[in-house]
C-alpha cells in the first residue's frame, strides 16, 4: 500500500452543502455578462426587457438570499474520486444526502423529490441526490453540484442516429428539438450535447458538457467550430428569451463527444434554462 490520503465523509457532506448554497443563489461568473451582451443585440423590446428581468432576478437572488428559481432542482452530484483516497466514516451516499438535506432545510429551498415515480410521495428533504462517481488518478476528490429544474429536464431528448448521417442532419435535429421545446425550458439556453458513447453515456455527457465552464472554448477546433455553428443557428430560430421572440435563444452550446460503436451514433440533448446553477470544489 502506498500513501493513502484519508478524507472523512463528514467533510464531503459539508462541502456538498456549501456547493448547494453557492449554486442556489448565484450563477457562475460570466453568465450575467452574456445576458447583458445579448440585450445589446436584441431589437425587439420584449426580448430586451426579458433579458433585463433575468439579470435583475440574479441580482435580487444574490442580495436577498432568495433562490434564483423556486424550482431549486434535483441535486445532481458529480464526484471524481482519486484512487489514492480513502473515504472514512458514513457511506458516501449517506454523507451526500445528509449534506443536501441540511442545506435545503437551512436555506429555505424547495424540496422537489418524490420517493417513487408512480406513487409520488415527496420525501420532504430533496433527497436522494443523484450521484455520478468516477475513479480518477491522484489523491483528491472533485465535487460538482449541479441543480436541474424539472421544466428544463423534461425537454431532454436522445436520438440514435445512423452512423452515416450528415452533420447537417444532426444540426437539424438539435434545432428542431430546441424550437419544439420553445418557451418551456426557459431560454436563453445553455445547451449540452452528448455525442457518441452508448445511449446512457451520451445523456450523461450532455449533462457534464454544460459544466465545462462559462466562456470556455472546446479544446478540439472541430467541435469548437461545430458549437459556434449550432449556436448561430439556434439564435436564428426566433424563439428568443422565454420564447417571447428574439435572437437570444441560446447562450452557449457545449459538446461532449465520446468513442462509440461502429453501428451507433447517439445524440443526447440537455437543455439548461437561463439560470445555470452549478458549483465546484476540489478537496
Amino acid at each position: 500500500m502506498g500513501n493513502r490520503r484519508l478524507i472523512p465523509t463528514e467533510i464531503v457532506a459539508g462541502a456538498v452543502g456549501e456547493l448547494v448554497e453557492r449554486a442556489s443563489f448565484a450563477m457562475p461568473p460570466g453568465v450575467e455578462e452574456i445576458y447583458e451582451a445579448m440585450r445589446g443585440r436584441e431589437r425587439f423590446e420584449m426580448a430586451r426587457h426579458t433579458l433585463g428581468v433575468i439579470v435583475e432576478n440574479a441580482s435580487i437572488a444574490r442580495k436577498e438570499r432568495l433562490p434564483l428559481c423556486q424550482d431549486c432542482g434535483a441535486t445532481i452530484v458529480f464526484c471524481d474520486i482519486g484512487q489514492d483516497v480513502s473515504l472514512e466514516g458514513e457511506s458516501l451516499r449517506d454523507a451526500l444526502d445528509r449534506g443536501v438535506l441540511e442545506a435545503y432545510e437551512r436555506l429555505y429551498l424547495r424540496k422537489s423529490i418524490v420517493a417513487d415515480p408512480l406513487t409520488r410521495a415527496n420525501t420532504g428533504t430533496n433527497t436522494p441526490c443523484f450521484i455520478h462517481t468516477d475513479i480518477v488518478s491522484g489523491d483528491r476528490v472533485g465535487i460538482t453540484v449541479y441543480l436541474k429544474g424539472g421544466g428544463s429536464e423534461n425537454m431532454s431528448c436522445l436520438r440514435m442516429f445512423r452512423p452515416t448521417v450528415s452533420i447537417d442532419e444532426i444540426m437539424d435535429y438539435i434545432t428542431e428539438r430546441v424550437v419544439e421545446a420553445g418557451p418551456n425550458p426557459c431560454p436563453p439556453l445553455f445547451l449540452g450535447v452528448g455525442i457518441g458513447g452508448t445511449a446512457d453515456l451520451a445523456m450523461l455527457n450532455a449533462k457534464r458538457a454544460v459544466l465545462r465552464g462559462v466562456g470556455s472554448v472546446h479544446p478540439d477546433p472541430f467541435y469548437a467550430g461545430l458549437e459556434s455553428r449550432i449556436l448561430e443557428r439556434l439564435n436564428k430560430t426566433g424563439v428568443g428569451p422565454l420564447g417571447f421572440g428574439g435572437v437570444s435563444t441560446a447562450a452557449a452550446v457545449y459538446i461532449e463527444a465520446a468513442p462509440t460503436h461502429i453501428a451507433t451514433l447517439p445524440v443526447a440533448l440537455n437543455l439548461n434554462c437561463h439560470s445555470l446553477r452549478y458549483a465546484k470544489r476540489v478537496l
Binding site: 428581468v53 432576478n57 436577498e64 432568495l66 434564483l68 424550482d71 424547495r110 424540496k111 434554462c273
Partner: peptide, 25 residues
C-alpha cells in the same frame, strides 16, 4: 417570467394556504 422566481416574489404582498395543505409545495 419563467425562472425569475426571486424577481417575481417582490411583487407578491401576501400568501395564504387555502386548501390541500398536505400537498406541501
Amino acid at each position: 417570467f419563467g425562472g425569475a422566481g426571486a424577481y417575481l416574489s417582490k411583487r407578491i404582498r401576501s400568501s395564504m394556504v387555502i386548501a390541500f395543505d398536505d400537498l406541501g409545495p
